[in-house]
Amino acid sequence: MTEPNTESTTALDHVHRARLYKLASLAFDRPDEELEEALVSGTFADQLLESAAALENDDLEEHARAVVEASPTDAAGVDELYSDWSSLFGFETGGDIRQYQIEYSPGTLVTSGDTLADIAGFYRAFGLSIAEGNRERADHLCIELEFLSHLALQTAYLENEGDETGVAVVTDAQGDFLEDHLGRWIGSFRETVAEEVDVEFYRALGALVDTLVGDDTDRFGAEPKTFEETPPSPLEGLNDGEGDFRCGTCGPTSSGSTPEMPMGDRDGPY
């Protein structure tokens, strides 16, 4: 890690950073009422453009414009976005795009307990915990983004208060978090989205977040080491290309009403 270069960043800039991270977190999460309201009312677009422009980075501004252009602006559009989201990221239809850091790192969830603990430790160090009822894992993209949003906002507050020690603490934390965590995988995430997603909204959003993180790694002097490409899973050779290596004897169920308990044999239900 090198020295942070934050002298030219004003408190107001930090507020804009906080807003961008927050909006990105909201947009990458499962579309809900909060996002729908922000999109339909135009607040999402206004704030995104305003904050991207304020940070004076041409790429960021360009990506923000692309996101806004691809954003739905009515309820039907948000509904469609909901379906897109669940087929890409959701478990309902087995979405392939993972939003978790550990999925982009070598090793498995079982061998990455220390990483999860480290991320959770960052949250706890700043008095944060995952909201009750939210069962996302600590390494989820949206949670990592929201954490940075929080730190950015804290930086702005502490700058205004003139609390230099406080500013140094949150500055270090942002640099460390980007270097050890988000910065290491956001590039691969953006690439995956660019290669496998045809929904422009998410493609543009991926580019926006990657650029925002890139901007900040420079700002905080972070030098994240990108994860190597994950080696193939040991089960890969066993797959038949359709992601399944069962015996294939389970046939479709017959239709028609069943007055007796549904019966079957070793080829499946009758």
Partner: peptide, 18 residues
């Protein structure tokens, strides 16, 4: 009716396809 009982051994199975 995705859950069925096998005639030959009475094992109860869920047909995951259905």
């Amino acid at each position: 009716q995705a859950v069925y009982k096998r005639q030959e051994d009475g094992i109860v199975l869920i047909d995951e396809e259905s």
